[in-house]
C-alpha cells in the first residue's frame, strides 16, 4: 500500500486552481486559432481575435482568463492501492481551493446557502467527484466552471421512443435557446443514459475531453460531428454577433440506462473551457 499525505493533494489543488484560470489546454487554444482562421464573417473574426489576445495576456500570469474564476469542480481518480494519511480527502481538497483562490487573487464566487446567499469568502466548498480506479496513483483534475454557461445547461428525461433524433434535437435546442448568454463559442458536454444525476455528471465530465479527441465509439463520434455542424449552422456566432463559430466542440459520454428511460443532460461551457490536471 502506497501512503500519500493529503497535504500533497492540497498543494496540487491550489496550484491547479491558479494554472487552470490562466492557461488553456493546448487543444483548446489550437481549436480557437483554427476557427479564427476559418471564420469569414467580419464581426465574428474580430471577436475571435480578441479572445486570442486575451489568452495571451492571461498566460503572462497577471490576470485570469475570465473574471468568473468559477466554482472549483475537482475530479479525483483515486488508485485503490493508495492509503491517504494526514486528514480527510474532502478537507484537503477544500484547503487547496481556499489557498489557490486566495493566493492566486481569484474571485470568490460561492455563497453558503442558495437562498440566503452569504459568500463563503474563499470559494469553498469545491464540487468534488471521486472515482476509485486501479493502481497506486491519484489523478486530480481541477475544472473551474463559470456560471454564465452553467445557467444555460439543461437536463431532459426523454422517452426511449425519442431515439437518436430526439436526443440531437434537444441538444441543438438547448444551444439555440442559450444564444449569446453563455459566451459563445461554446463547448458542449452531453451525457446520455444513466439516470437523472448520472447523465448530468457525464455531461460535466464530457467537458474535460480534449477538443481534438472524438468519442472512441464511431456511432457517437459521428453524432458529435453532426451536432457540431447543426449548432454551427444556427448562425449565433461568437458572442452572439452572428457567424459560423457558435461551438468549438461537442463531446458525448454515455452510460447504460433503464428500459423506460433516455436521460439527456447538456452542460454548456464557454470558450474559456478550463481544466488542469496533475498525477501524484
Amino acid at each position: 500500500m502506497r501512503e500519500l499525505d493529503t497535504a500533497k493533494i492540497s498543494e496540487a489543488v491550489a496550484s491547479l486552481c491558479i494554472e487552470a484560470n490562466h492557461r488553456l489546454e493546448e487543444s483548446t487554444k489550437e481549436c480557437i486559432s483554427r476557427r479564427a482562421c476559418q471564420e469569414d464573417w467580419a464581426p465574428a473574426k474580430a471577436v475571435l481575435d480578441i479572445i486570442e489576445e486575451n489568452i495571451a495576456i492571461a498566460e503572462e500570469g497577471e490576470f485570469p482568463l475570465c473574471q468568473d474564476t468559477g466554482m472549483a469542480c475537482v475530479f479525483i481518480d483515486l488508485g485503490q492501492e493508495v492509503h491517504l494519511t494526514g486528514g480527510l480527502l474532502e478537507d484537503a481538497v477544500n484547503e487547496g481551493v481556499r489557498r489557490g483562490y486566495t493566493e492566486g487573487y481569484l474571485r470568490k464566487s460561492i455563497v453558503a446557502d442558495p437562498l440566503r446567499r452569504t459568500n463563503t469568502g474563499d470559494n469553498t466548498p469545491a464540487d468534488l467527484v471521486v472515482r476509485m480506479v486501479a493502481g497506486d496513483r491519484v489523478k486530480i483534475t481541477v475544472a473551474p466552471k463559470g456560471f454564465g454557461s452553467e445557467n444555460m445547461s439543461q437536463i431532459r428525461m426523454l422517452p426511449p421512443s425519442a431515439g437518436q433524433k430526439g436526443v440531437e434535437d434537444f441538444v441543438v435546442s438547448v444551444c439555440e435557446k442559450a444564444g449569446a448568454n453563455p459566451c459563445p463559442p461554446i463547448v458542449v458536454g452531453v451525457g446520455i443514459g444513466g439516470n437523472f444525476n448520472k447523465s448530468a455528471l457525464l455531461a460535466k465530465r464530457a467537458l474535460l475531453t480534449p477538443l481534438d479527441q472524438a468519442n472512441p465509439d464511431s456511432y457517437y463520434a459521428d453524432m458529435e460531428e453532426r451536432l457540431l455542424e447543426r449548432i454551427n449552422g444556427l448562425g449565433i456566432g461568437p458572442q452572439g454577433f452572428g457567424g459560423r463559430t457558435t461551438a468549438l466542440k461537442v463531446s458525448i459520454l454515455c452510460a447504460p440506462t433503464h428500459i423506460a428511460g433516455l436521460p439527456v443532460a447538456v452542460n454548456i461551457n464557454c470558450h474559456v473551457s478550463r481544466h488542469a490536471e496533475a498525477v501524484l
Binding site: 471577436v47 480578441i50 479572445i51 489576445e53 486575451n54 495576456i57 492571461a58 497577471e62 490576470f63 485570469p64 482568463l65 475570465c66 473574471q67 468568473d68 474571485r107 470568490k108 464566487s109 459568500n119 469568502g121 454564465g148 459566451c183 458572442q239 464557454c270 470558450h271 474559456v272
Partner: peptide
C-alpha cells in the same frame, strides 16, 4: 466580450469601491 476579461482589465486605469464593500466582487 464575455471571457475576454484580461483584455478589459487593461482598460481600467483606476477603481474605487464606493458602496456595499461587504459584497466583495
Amino acid at each position: 466580450i464575455g471571457g475576454a476579461a484580461a483584455v478589459m482589465a487593461r482598460c481600467v486605469k483606476s477603481a474605487e469601491v464606493i458602496a456595499f464593500p461587504d459584497l466583495g466582487a
